[in-house]
Amino acid sequence: MSQDKATLDAKTVAKIAHLARIKVPAEEQEHLAGELNKLLDWVEQLGEVDTDGVEPMTSVAAQTLRRRPDIVNDGGYPDKVVSNATDATEHFFSVPKVVE
């Protein structure tokens, strides 16, 4: 399985950081690449385990998710919903301009 794994370089770190929307200063990217590579090398050991025919475990509970009637059972308090926002006016969350 190791052929489909690439070694992470600073450029890849920059790319993942952008995907994760976390600003990582350029001078930290090289060091971080080293750290992440060490972790990825370490988890490579999972390749030793025979998992042919094993279903991936997504949840510990062997239960089907409960359903409930599709009715509104909460809400009606916009003041509370926006109370923790840095910038909220008239019950809207405000963000920097997106469209020019």
């Binding site: 489909d4 999972l46 390749g47 279903e55 991936p56 475990m57």
Partner: peptide
């Protein structure tokens, strides 16, 4: 990388359980 890492780990998790 999803299959190689994440899916693989979920399968090993099943083995551990």
């Amino acid at each position: 990388y999803y299959d190689a890492y994440y899916l693989k780990a979920q399968k090993v998790r099943a083995r551990i359980a």
